[in-house]
Write a protein that binds this DNA or RNA. Structure first.
Length: 419
RNA sequence: GGGGAGGUACUCAAGCGGUCAACGAGGGCAGACUGUAAAUCUGUUGGCUAUAGCCUACGGAGGUUCGAAUCCUUCCCUCCCCA
């Protein structure tokens, strides 16, 4: 069912290319040769700006998975040092500074999520925090040893900085230094772990190349860079900002059911691309599913959602999410238990609960006004029945086999069970 | 250091003494159409109670006024030009 391990696959680089992981890279032929030869060490940096990854982080993670399966050694570094600076690439405004403690605790959470995808035991994978070597740096020494290799003319010509320089917010010196630090990371990892390849999002191209240049200047050696395409969807751009919009890998933030729903609901045009990138299904299966048209596209989306959820949350959770989704969207009698559920006391129900309050309480509405609006627009449902009046009171008479099913619009379900 | 321009809701962006909870666009949400898709059309988009109303909001703090996002003072922040 899964792609064959290294050996059967002619070349991981081909695999990555075929699955749409490669946006830009330094000399492709050399990288292909490098990856098909002896085992190498590669690295990807992650920002510990939150205590969980979100869906977008799966691109680099899956790329790392493919490389590790091919026998190469991953280094995942969290930018404990660099995050204290804040990368301006692709950002329109300066990022908020984050405290060291937060960065560290975020880092731990992120590592535990990474472990679900990658093996960090023994020597098969390495997890590092660049705070370890960045924080002790001496400013003067750093300027003399590293800073002198950077030409400001070159830097400000880079797209990443130019945008900010043209915008009103400008660019602070601390942000301008970010690139030097990331480049230094690469140099450090090359020296300590013989790391010869850095991968990252395409917005990191400039930063990664800075590292490649630095290694060449200082060590006289050639190392490589690969960037991933930035998976942009209609809402992708502002994903980081809106609280409700992000899809997290942390089950407490985004339940497996909601996670599954996110993947089932993607755009038709994204199906094949996503299957290739976010699942480990063999490519011929990916292509087959990608060819499905009209209604049967849903089948492909189900497979996608199931596979991605399985990787993130395990097989059991994935199955529960799939069952719950089928149950919620048609298939009568299937298991609804994975649908987000809130338990309330019998006595509360006996007293009657205003439907508006109930929706708010379970998170199906941000405020009472919002729920009233929803009801007025005909988007609120109780046990499949449209709620017509904003002052409807829910009592035990509404119980259907001991539970209540609330619905917001077409897709958001929430179950109430009595405890 | 000198001079100039600005800081408005999720974002961009109008408003420049009352009719402003604040035009418009994007985004979000809902409805119709569908395939839990896209596109399109419609409605909606501060909170609380409600046919009315009340409260909180236009960088922060004061002030003028019957009344301010709009005027004054001051503080903070940003950008541009000159040095």
């Amino acid at each position: 069912m899964y792609i064959a391990r290294s050996g059967l696959v002619e070349n991981v680089f081909e695999t990555l290319k075929e699955r749409g992981f490669i946006q830009q890279c330094t000399n492709a032929d050399e990288i292909a040769r490098l990856l098909s030869g002896e085992k190498i060490t590669y690295y990807v940096g992650f920002d510990p700006t939150a205590d969980s990854f979100h869906a977008g982080s799966l691109v680099p993670i899956m790329a790392m998975v493919h490389l590790q399966r091919a026998g190469h050694t991953p280094i995942a570094i969290i930018g404990g040092g660099t995050t204290m600076i804040g990368d301006p690439s692709g950002k329109t405004t300066m990022r908020q500074m984050i405290s060291r403690e937060t960065i560290e605790s975020n880092g731990m959470e992120i590592l535990s999520q990474l472990r679900r995808y990658l093996n960090f035991s023994d020597t098969s994978g390495i997890f590092l925090n660049n705070a370890e070597w960045l924080l002790p740096l001496s400013y003067i020494e750093f300027l003399r040893d590293i800073g002198r290799h950077f030409r400001v003319n070159e830097m400000i010509r880079a797209e990443a900085y130019r945008q900010r320089l043209e915008r009103e917010e400008g660019l602070s010196f601390i942000e301008f230094n970010y690139q030097l630090l990331q480049a230094y990371d690469f140099l450090h990892l090359f020296r300590q772990h013989n790391c010869v390849l850095q991968l990252g999002g395409d917005d990191q191209w400039g930063n990664i190349l800075a590292g490649v240049d630095l290694v060449r200047r200082v060590e006289g050696k050639t190392v490589h860079a690969v960037t991933f395409p930035l998976f942009t969807t209609a809402s992708g751009e502002k994903m980081g900002k809106t609280a409700g919009g992000a899809v997290w890998l942390d089950a407490n933030r985004t339940s497996p059911y909601e996670f599954y729903q996110h993947w089932v609901n993607i755009n038709d045009r994204d199906v094949q691309r996503f299957l290739a990138c976010f699942t480990l299904l063999p490519m011929d299966e990916v292509v087959r599913l990608g060819k499905l048209k009209s209604e049967s596209v849903r089948e492909a989306k189900e497979v996608l959602a199931y596979e991605v959820t399985k990787l993130a949350h395990g097989e059991t959770e994935a199955e529960k999410a799939r069952n719950a989704s089928r149950a919620a969207f048609g298939d009568e009698g299937a298991d609804m238990s994975a649908i987000p559920t809130t338990t309330i006391g019998v006595d509360r129900l006996a007293g009657g609960i205003l439907i508006v309050d109930l929706f708010c309480e379970v998170g199906l509405g941000s405020s009472k006004s919002a729920v009233r609006r929803l009801i007025q627009q005909g988007g609120a449902y109780l046990n499949g029945e449209q709620v017509k009046e904003t002052d409807t009171i829910v009592t035990e008479e509404h119980l259907d086999e001991g539970t209540l099913l609330l619905r917001h619009g077409k897709k958001q379900f929430h179950r109430i069970s009595i405890g």
